[in-house]
Design a protein around this nucleic acid. Structure first.
Lengths: 208, 208, 208, 208
DNA sequence: GATGAATGAGTCTTCATTCAT
DNA sequence: AATGAATGAAGACTCATTCAT
């Protein structure tokens, strides 16, 4: 399994419960705003206001505005994908693999909706900023690891599981993006979902 | 074929040759800087300097900074992908489809490298800004149309050609991004390229 | 003679007359405020307002607030001491050396008054900031050079002229400071001035 | 002898031993930091941390940050100069006056080194702030008084002893500053020390 | 048409001081 | 008395846009 690299930022970690909650509120508020308006269009006053704190306190918990963004990325990664993968376990006995992949795609589309632009902006900023790149990679690896774990639960042992899992994740993410945001009127999204599910199942089903 | 939506911006179009060249130089310079540094990290003074014009003149040709970005997106779309697709024509008689797809992926990786962050940032901004979204869609459709044309040249007539072309394009774009920027050390990129080529060929080869 | 080291800051030097005047106005305004209120108690908005410009334009002429301070130090050095030294030339035939030194001290006290705290603050900041130290040294050297020149005009050729000139300058500067700002009620400043003049004359009069 | 003006601040004086120690620790920590980094570059959180107390408690002992600075000035004055003057007593029988003055200058140079910027910054701030001016004067007078006492111990009774002592102190302080911080490469500091010692001895040796 | 100096609102960040615990 | 998290006003600096020349 790919191991998440530890991040060694020199941020004072809050120990007290209230402080931890406040830090979470800031991440939450920042994340929500970054998703709605993007990093560059969100200012620190807004984040503080949304979190119900003063602007000054932001800098007790985070080294700068970008640090809030990074924390939000990590928080973001932990939330979207894992529940969906875990839920597949209970579906295993009832549904076929193509049905479950289709269900996963559907649930990803639903969960992506609440994160709006964050994912793309993270990708964009990752190209310019090593710290964002690192946070993005952590998130990415986690999802790929989750997919590989799910594959194992389903008895799928294709050659090169991580490479294939990565491709599968990309396919689903692009599909989500396309369906939620781009909306080309000439494309039939039901057909696209079917096709993506079919491609994934085929790719993962090749046992050695 | 999907038709490009008309552009309804109220920008004075330069008629004189010198003015047209100047506008091109601005787009060129802006595009280069946006690729290198991102939209938010590029300022208008830099663009003007790189284009060899005054900052004031920018606003004769463009309504604002974002308008330069939009023009750059349109210019961007016309340049990267088309040459690669056209080149496949001459390869048709000599190489097999899997070989040609693999060649296309390789040439996309090469051409993506020079555009760095532009593509991702456009996607990110497209989520927040309808005008950018519209420009992005124009670019996206063009690529999909190019792929469909190429499919026809190769005698590939699968059902739902646009949907499949879109999926294929997504796969290749994600692969480019992964290889050029993310570089997960645990992934074998040769295998990923092979696998993506295989998946695309398989998807497109299903004739009705 | 001690030579002033050239300073290689990367500030865009204004070439046009109006721009040079504006830069001067900013230095003037900054200098005045720094003298009145000190560097740390003067903000950029005040400087801009006093110079009759916008805050933004400050950064066309100076890299940062400190850079205005440095420019002010250089400007400061050129103005205070030189006129006084030059004026001694015309007094040479009429007055004796002790009388002229006494006259110089008096005129220094008068000219110091308009620069209030600048000199001390420069000395204080010079201890923490190499750039300020460098600017202070330039100013200091200039004064010492001026004193040595004056000594030569008066036919004074003591051994170690630069060391002695430096001591003389220090004595006068401290005297100015004491008289203008400290005002110990128990000290008789007429006597101090006489004593300082006597010490300087004695020190400089020792010909080899 | 010049009498120190009484201090009229409305600060609650700690009576308990532990509280007095705590106040001392704060002054100590503040003094050290002010010397190292200057008043404006030292913040109250740092002072509290260095003193091992909470930021809130600072305001039980001091009315504001400047008040810590004032207390530090008073503490500062008591420490640097007195030991050096006292030590001269034991040298009296063995060494000549010029030797002892030279020894004093040397020991001042050594002791100044540990106080870095404090002295200059106090002088600078004294020009802007009456309270700092008052604290500086107290310190200054003390040094002058110490010099006069030493003069008496050495049997020196020139006319205007306070004025001359003040001039002597200024000379030595400037010399310290020059040697420790300015370091003009073209000046020979051994010669300057000799010259300053010579001037001081000459000035103080004139008995009525 | 062309210039580029000028604007000033907007941004992130700091820090002396307070106050609920 | 003691804490240290919280405040929020104030600061330096940026930059898209304008306009006198």
């Amino acid at each position: 399994m790919i191991v998440l690299a530890g991040d060694k930022r020199t941020v004072r970690q809050p120990r007290q419960k209230r402080a931890i909650e406040k830090k979470s509120r800031i991440i939450e508020a920042g994340f929500k705003l970054f998703c709605e308006k993007g990093f560059h269009n969100t200012n620190t006053v807004e984040i503080a206001k949304a979190a119900g704190v003063s602007t000054g306190i932001l800098y007790n918990y985070f080294v700068d505005k970008k640090d809030i963004f990074l924390a939000a990325i990590d928080s973001f990664g932990n939330r979207i994908t894992l529940p969906a993968f875990q839920a597949t376990e209970s579906l295993k006995s009832t549904f076929s693999l193509p049905e479950i992949v289709r269900w996963l795609i559907d649930s990803f589309i639903k969960s992506h909706d609440q994160f709006k632009s964050a994912h793309e902006e993270i990708r964009a900023m990752a190209l310019l900023d090593p710290e964002v790149a690192s946070a993005f990679n952590r998130f990415d690896l986690q999802t790929v690891n989750d997919v590989v774990k799910m594959m194992q639960r389903f008895g799928l042992n294709p050659p090169h599981p991580y490479e294939k899992a990565h491709i599968a994740v990309s396919l689903v993410e692009n599909l989500c993006h396309e369906i939620l945001y781009s909306r080309h009127e000439d494309l039939d999204y039901d057909i696209m979902i079917d096709e993506v599910a079919r491609v994934i199942v085929q790719m993962l089903s090749v046992n050695p």
